[in-house]
Computed example of a mutant assay.
Amino acid sequence: METRIDEIGDRIYRLSTYVPDIVPPAGFTFNQFLILGEEPMLFHAGFRRMFPMVSAAVSRLMPVEHLRWITFGHYEADECGAMNEWLAVAPNAQVAHGATGCLVSLNDMADRPPRILANGEVIDIGGKQIRYIDTPHVPHGWDAGVIYDETSRTLFCGDLFTHLGNGPALTESDIVGPALAAEDIFYDTSLGPSIAPTVRRLADLAPRTLALMHGSSYVGDAVAALRDLAGAYDHRLRAVMAEVPA
């Protein structure tokens, strides 16, 4: 394995580690994002076992010890397994997450106290304004949330739009169809009444770029992609409810 570096936006770097043994032959990518500013932010800490590769990649872009913020979609090994490794090498870094994630997991599991972010709170990292948005159970996890770079209009989607393969870092091709195909393999979405409205609220941000944790990031009509995904979730939920006995 190796970690590939691609700039997908102004001072936004995708750090992608491809694992071919997951759902072969397509394989699966684990993507982390470094957002550079006066106070650099890492979205997804990644697995502990990948830390040496990913930290080496970060060191090619900036001194690792200058990392200031660490955040992620929800408490799960591929998203935050290495958070304490990052805290150990970056003495001024702090984990930042929503209230549920901090109270349920991070106050105990992080080696330094995390910063609790209110829904809609903005962190100024110097040159970029990063907004935290609670998305409980979307696509899964009670503590789920996403971040939005208001400066570049980049939505960091976490596990939304997860798809297989080792495609380009940034694509204009359809990501909704591949995401639904992956859903049919993993069944990773909490299919409930809140998911489609939550995804539509993300579309209302009018992002230009969707930064995906698993698969190619997307540039193009991101609003339409989000609305199409919400519509697909609505359709699937209706189909499931139709099968429930009265």
Rank of each mutant, 00 (worst) to 15 (best):
D6F: 07
E7N: 03
G9A: 08
G9F: 01
G9V: 07
Y13Q: 00
L15Q: 06
T17W: 07
Y18H: 09
P20K: 12
P24T: 14
A26I: 11
M41H: 08
A45I: 07
G46R: 01
V54Y: 02
H66D: 13
I70E: 06
T71D: 03
G81L: 05
M83D: 00
E85P: 03
E85A: 07
A88V: 04
V95W: 01
A96V: 13
H97L: 15
H97P: 07
C102G: 02
N107E: 15
P114W: 07
N119M: 01
G120C: 13
E121M: 09
R131C: 15
G141F: 06
G141W: 02
G141V: 09
V146I: 08
I147G: 01
Y148E: 03
T151I: 12
T151F: 09
N166A: 10
D174G: 03
I175T: 00
V176W: 00
G177N: 09
A182Q: 01
E183M: 05
F186K: 03
F186M: 07
Y187Q: 14
Y187E: 14
S190F: 12
A196Q: 00
A196H: 02
L205G: 01
T209M: 08
L210R: 03
L210F: 09
V219H: 01
A222I: 06
A224Y: 04
A225K: 00
A225L: 01
R227L: 12
D228M: 02
L229M: 02
L229F: 02
G231T: 13
Y233C: 14
D234N: 13
D234F: 08
R236S: 11
L237A: 05
A239F: 11
V240T: 11
M241S: 14
M241L: 14
